[in-house]
């Protein structure tokens, strides 16, 4: 091959690739407003992004799959944990992760910062990103779909959908912070009241009050109470 030909391979190859990147970047900018719901980028969401960066969260957690691999991905954290679940972890990681083999640093976030952070994570959870990550897609379908489609009891579907398994485990699947559901040796009413307001029963409880209706709490409690009986 001639020296000149090699030079042209370099120039043409590089230019084509650069033009593809630049052209598609322009188009990406056009589409990204709709894909990320950028019209909902409120001052609170933007402030929440600043909180996320201020405390260097991203060097332990991934978001959109990028960052540190030391802690769970935060893309769909809002689906998985809900606002309360995020709040209780950020404000008291020393308590929530007391029994966890991995710890999270306890920083002094203000209530305002936590609110902003939650708004940011909620906004991120709605980005249309080709349904990634796979492991968190299960939090999205509504309870009714599970009840109708899989024939699950309502209590079981709620346990899955309300994010209970972020802290508790069922059949060996789920979080390690709270007790395994199979080990809960309480009756239905006790469990129901505990779900609605844990501190009314145990003032030192680390579990946050759950945002479920009384009826839903009853369905969950019924499921857990029966679980215990079924095991005996």
């Amino acid at each position: 091959m001639e020296f000149k030909a090699a030079k042209w391979i370099f120039i043409i190859g590089t230019s084509i690739s650069a033009m593809i990147l630049l052209g598609l970047t322009i188009d990406t900018h056009r589409q990204v407003t709709a894909l990320t719901h950028a019209d909902q980028l409120t001052p609170q969401v933007i402030a929440g992004k600043a909180v996320w960066e201020k405390y260097n969260c991203n060097d332990c957690h991934t978001i959109l799959g990028f960052g540190g691999y030391y802690a769970p991905d935060m893309t769909k954290a809002y689906w998985r944990l809900g606002a309360e679940g995020i709040k209780v972890r950020v404000l008291g990681p020393d308590k929530v992760f007391a029994n966890s083999m991995r710890k999270m640093p306890k920083y002094d976030l203000t209530e305002e910062e936590v609110k902003n952070l939650i708004a940011f994570l909620k906004w991120v959870s709605e980005i249309e990103n080709n349904n990634w990550p796979p492991q968190d897609q299960k939090y999205k379908p509504g309870v009714n779909i599970l009840v109708a489609g899989v024939g699950m009891s309502k209590g079981a579907a709620l346990i899955k959908e309300a994010g209970c398994l972020a802290c508790h485990s069922l059949g060996g699947v789920g979080g390690l912070q709270g007790p395994e559901f199979e080990q809960v040796k309480r009756d239905k009413d006790y469990i129901k009241n505990y779900i609605l307001d844990p501190r009314s029963i145990n003032p030192d409880a680390t579990m946050p009050a759950q945002r479920v209706s009384e009826e839903e709490a009853e369905a969950i409690a019924e499921y857990i109470a029966n679980l215990k009986e079924g095991r005996k």
Binding site: D27, T28, V32, T36
Partner: peptide, 19 residues
């Protein structure tokens, strides 16, 4: 550069960019 520049796209699968 031909493969690498447009290859940046392999980071754009799951971040909310077009399909």
């Amino acid at each position: 550069l031909f493969t690498g520049i447009a290859g940046t796209g392999h980071h754009y699968y799951w971040l909310g960019a077009p399909r």
